[in-house]
Simulated scan of single mutants.
Amino acid sequence: MSIAKIRGRARGAGSEFVLACDMRFASREHAVLSQPEIGLGLVAGGAPTHHLPFLTGRGRALEIMLTGQDYDADLAERYGYVNRSVPDASLDGFVDDVADRIASFDKAALVEVKNFVGEVSLPSHELQAPTSAAFWASATRPAGRRRLAAAKERGLGRPGDFELRMGRHLPGLDRETGA
């Protein structure tokens, strides 16, 4: 059983990591989730295209993947991106209580329930390789290279407004790069 506790930004690979967890709980005041790759001219490579539709539904998965917007914890909860949005002051205790409760139950029963739920709600592992290949191919295309370079110039990977509000900056890369 894997439980993600999100108290900050989980974008791109960070989002893909938490999507691979069994449950996700987010700080109402501090969590931000997104799949910004589209704004960088990339195809997300960690299979969010396969995980998100199971969690959020097709339309919302497409919205998340095709807009590159940032989602606060409350909207992420309404969409199914996270299980629950919790006040930050209560997040640690809440997640500990969930984990302790689950850990108190019969392990064999937990495994069986998790396996049965997974059979109908998880994407096939065979989908990972094509997704990864699409990511690397998109990173070598001219548009992807231009948009990544523009994002780095604007502050990608460095403390500042671009990282804090990436979802708002991505559409501007189109005008600046001509991509």
Score class of each variant (00 low, 15 high):
173 L>A: 00
137 A>P: 11
114 K>P: 07
38 I>Y: 09
84 R>A: 06
14 G>R: 06
97 D>Y: 14
120 V>N: 08
33 L>M: 10
111 V>H: 15
91 L>M: 12
114 K>I: 13
51 H>P: 05
98 V>S: 04
76 A>Q: 03
48 P>V: 06
16 E>V: 11
155 G>V: 12
177 T>I: 11
18 V>L: 12
91 L>K: 01
76 A>V: 02
142 P>T: 00
158 R>E: 10
63 E>G: 02
72 D>F: 09
44 A>Y: 07
131 T>C: 13
113 V>C: 06
77 E>Q: 10
58 R>H: 13
128 Q>G: 13
170 L>C: 08
144 G>K: 02
140 T>A: 00
6 I>C: 05
58 R>D: 02
69 Q>C: 11
178 G>K: 08
105 F>R: 07
80 G>W: 13
59 G>V: 13
122 L>V: 09
156 L>P: 03
178 G>D: 07
168 R>V: 06
42 L>T: 01
164 L>H: 04
68 G>N: 04
77 E>H: 05
80 G>P: 14
14 G>A: 05
74 D>V: 15
142 P>W: 01
90 S>E: 15
155 G>T: 08
133 A>R: 13
86 V>M: 03
134 A>E: 10
15 S>V: 05
100 D>M: 11
62 L>S: 04
35 Q>W: 09
156 L>H: 08
32 V>I: 14
146 R>L: 01
50 H>P: 09
16 E>T: 11
38 I>W: 03
132 S>M: 02
40 L>C: 03
4 A>G: 15
113 V>Y: 13
81 Y>S: 02
90 S>T: 07
89 A>H: 12
92 D>C: 01
38 I>E: 01
75 L>A: 11
136 W>C: 04
30 H>P: 04
41 G>I: 09
113 V>D: 11
155 G>I: 09
171 P>V: 14
145 R>E: 08
46 G>R: 01
123 P>M: 04
74 D>L: 10
56 T>N: 08
60 R>C: 07
148 L>M: 10
110 L>Y: 14
